[in-house]
């Protein structure tokens, strides 16, 4: 609130203006009261067991999503052989980063949906856009209750003939794009991927190479990275989930001197 030559008048009414000054809308005048829990009640703080970046690339006839196989517990490399990229059904692949427990919760529910979708046997099968929209709603509604699922997810798949690639974050903010990355990948992998994807549609081979290169860069530079990664590739021929490993080369380290 503005001061009037050191004289402070009381506002006319609660949240109203003091003479000659601005309305005191709640968000304009903050009394910090750190003793009170944030927003008046306690929440489970944040991500605990986490997975790092996911990289997704759309090529002319399909989509590849890749993520390393490490799940960390803070600074501890806790679980070394965990899949973070999944085949959901014949049309959909999914990659997760963020809190692994939250993911297990949502994955359990996705599996139920897939099971009931399968058992309906109506020849209508869940498509990537359906799952993408559903996840967006779930994450948005959880954030609106201040009880978010701490997740960053990449959904890929075949929407009929067309490849589909979308990203949903903790708040339910979602978008589709030709190349998508989460976590550190937004800084390390995305520029690399964009350099190629913005020139026009990629073919499967270049997409494959780009993913490999991205995972390599991420392993070298992301502290929570890991050489082993899994990748899911989807196209008209179906889904293949495969394990890979970054070919490490530390020869370079010997030539670095001076610090």
């Amino acid at each position: 609130m503005m001061s009037n030559n050191g004289v402070n008048f009381a506002p006319f009414w609660h949240n109203g203006p003091a003479p000659g000054s601005f309305y005191n809308f709640p968000q304009n005048n903050i009394k910090s009261n750190s003793a009170i829990d944030e927003y008046g009640f306690q929440r489970n703080g944040g991500p605990i067991t986490t997975g790092t970046s996911i990289v997704g690339v759309k090529y002319d006839k399909g989509v590849i999503i890749a993520g390393d196989k490490l799940v960390s517990y803070g600074n501890l490399a806790r679980y070394h052989n965990v899949d973070r990229v999944f085949k959901i059904n014949e049309n959909i692949i999914l990659g997760m980063s963020g809190d692994y427990a939250d993911f297990q919760f949502i994955k359990q529910y996705i599996d139920e949906i897939i099971l009931s979708d399968f058992s309906a046997d109506d020849r209508i099968v869940l498509k990537p856009k359906d799952l993408y929209t559903w996840l967006t709603r779930v994450l948005y509604n959880r954030r609106s209750r201040f009880n978010p699922l701490w997740l960053d997810m990449v959904v890929g798949g075949m929407q009929g003939e067309e490849p589909f690639l979308g990203h949903i974050n903790i708040r339910g903010r979602s978008y589709t794009n030709d190349v998508i990355s989460t976590g550190y990948g937004t800084h390390l992998a995305l520029p690399l991927l964009r350099e190629y994807s913005e020139k026009g549609p990629l073919n499967e081979e270049t997409a494959q190479q780009l993913i490999q290169k991205s995972m390599e860069v991420l392993f070298y530079r992301d502290c929570r990275g890991y050489p082993k990664y899994s990748q899911a590739n989807i196209n008209a021929n179906g889904v293949t989930v495969s394990d890979h490993e970054v070919k490490q080369n530390w020869d370079l380290a010997l030539s670095i001197k001076g610090y």
């Binding site: 829990d37 944030e38 306690q42 929440r43 703080g45 944040g46 991500p47 803070g74 954030r143 609106s144 201040f146 978010p148 701490w150 974050n169 903790i170 708040r171 903010r173």
Partner: peptide, 22 residues
Amino acid sequence: GINQFPEYQVPGAVQHQFNPYE
């Protein structure tokens, strides 16, 4: 939670604060 231990609320301790707005 970390809020119960104010002495540990130092810059080094990672605190995740959820913000619904972006």
